[in-house]
Design a protein around this nucleic acid. Structure first.
Lengths: 157, 157
DNA sequence: TCAAATCCGGACAACTTTGTCAAGTTTACC
DNA sequence: GGTAAACTTGACAAAGTTGTCCGGATTTGA
């Protein structure tokens, strides 16, 4: 269980863009330089974000990327989904069926609720955190993560 | 971000063993059959569990595997660590440093607290769930997962 | 029109993960 | 002893992930 390189680096790239002023352009080479990534790889990551409409590209000289919305309106969930297909997935049972056509645990699976519960909380929390939330210092962000997770676990009806 | 095949299948295998009576032997082919996995692959997974001393092997005819402890004393955290090295890892920054020798975000990293907080809660929750907890039905397990996670978030001092 | 700066995207090599295979070793039982 | 049932282990093929390369397209501005 780990964060993939694409998820981690892609999030860092869009965060670099988000830290700039509204509408300010960031180029691939600028972002690559700031993150210590190759220009080629950074380009690939930005393409993924662009296909998800989280950033917009401006081609040609003086071109670059701008955020597709204000940092308050782009959730970490959106970013993660743009960078990795299933995202923690509640479909672990479908993904790992074994050799049997239908998952052996189709009827009653005691592992599924573990992953599903964690996955649901995790996804909900990421959907309730936005890029702007990450502008704060480490302690503040950690506190916000807990707060959003708690919100997921004990929703106010 | 996903559960790896080794983690998922390995957990299922040891759970098959845990469901048996105390000291009862389960063979690789029996477990493989129940889980719809190949005998060879199942053998490899059991080896991982054995190296972590979570199961013991009995060689020779009539041999097989037995749980290394009662199901109440084997935590999901132990199982996961046996099956995958870093386990959600709080070392994401170390793992993905980019091309720069030191992580660009060494001093202040606003992404780190997200993964660290999640990872800490996640690990704590897995350490507070044991194989016996998974004997219940889906709804009961889901409830237990939430309860343990809450325990991690709001520890009683 | 041309050159420079920039993004675009497919091909591909390196690496990791997944799963299989085959040649062992050990033990029980006849 | 011999044979069958079981685990052990390393090599390796298949598949997925990571990151690079390179020829191209687009825009600006001289």
């Amino acid at each position: 269980m780990k964060i993939s390189a694409q998820e981690e680096y892609g999030l860092r790239c869009i965060l670099q863009l988000a830290r700039k002023g509204a509408g300010e352009i960031g180029t691939i080479s600028e972002i690559a330089g700031k993150e210590g990534l190759s220009v080629e790889y950074t380009g690939k990551l930005m393409m993924l974000l662009r296909h998800a409409h989280l950033v917009e590209s401006l081609r040609g000289k003086n071109g670059g990327y701008v955020l597709g919305a204000v940092p308050e309106e782009i959730s970490l969930g959106q970013v993660m989904r743009a960078l990795s297909k299933p995202l923690f997935l509640e479909e672990t049972c479908d993904d790992y069926p074994g050799q049997v056509a239908e998952c052996v645990h189709r009827r009653e699976c005691s592992i599924r609720p573990v992953w599903v519960t964690i996955g649901t909380l995790f996804n909900g929390m990421l959907d309730n955190l936005c890029l702007a939330d990450l502008f704060d210092n480490e302690a503040a962000v950690a506190s916000k993560v807990r707060q959003r997770l708690l919100l997921e676990m004990c929703p106010v009806h």
